[in-house]
């Protein structure tokens, strides 16, 4: 059984880990690093619940090997809140009721976090396109779109 010594930086903290070749990134995060904010949904590259940022790009962490992330930067939902203050996106999901059961939320937050990094004031169409790889079965998406618009406005005011 092949193992590899890797180092990943998650939310700014470097972690050393020994991983099997076949270990998936989402299992490294949840089971070895105990960062359980990232959810496993469909486990078949469809639902996007496991979305994390890999070097700033949102990817499905059930479809990336942990060893592929060696030496790279990962951002997860745990890194959004800073010093007890919610990220504007998290506030937006709170204020606009962007979730019900919450299962898709970590993935939605990471995908839209990357969106707002590259596009300060995205149109509704851009938001819907960006989250088209993240499934939500509760909200019908409307409140998620409103939550992202709320965050874009809030971030614009802060800038």
């Amino acid at each position: 059984m092949a193992t590899h010594d890797i180092r990943v930086t998650v939310n700014g903290t470097a972690y050393d880990a020994q991983v099997e070749s076949r270990l998936l990134l989402v299992h490294l995060l949840r089971d070895q690093l105990r960062l359980t904010g990232t959810h496993i949904g469909c486990d078949t590259t469809h639902c996007g619940a496991c979305t994390v940022l890999l070097d700033g790009q949102p990817v499905k962490s059930c479809t990336v090997l942990a060893v592929q992330a060696d030496g790279r930067q990962i951002s997860t939902v745990e890194g959004l809140e800073k010093d007890g203050k919610l990220h504007p996106l998290q506030e937006g999901f709170w204020e606009k009721h962007g979730l019900q059961c919450g299962y898709c939320t970590p993935g939605m937050l990471m995908t839209t976090c990357a969106l707002l990094t590259r596009s300060k004031n995205p149109s509704e169409a851009e938001i819907r396109e960006a989250i088209s790889g993240n499934l939500c079965r509760c909200t019908g998406y409307n409140n998620i779109v409103k939550a992202v618009q709320f965050a874009a406005e809030r971030l614009g005011k802060e800038a």
Partner: peptide, 9 residues
Amino acid sequence: IADPLVRNM
């Protein structure tokens, strides 16, 4: 092709 997240990889 697939969805935007998949297209990043």
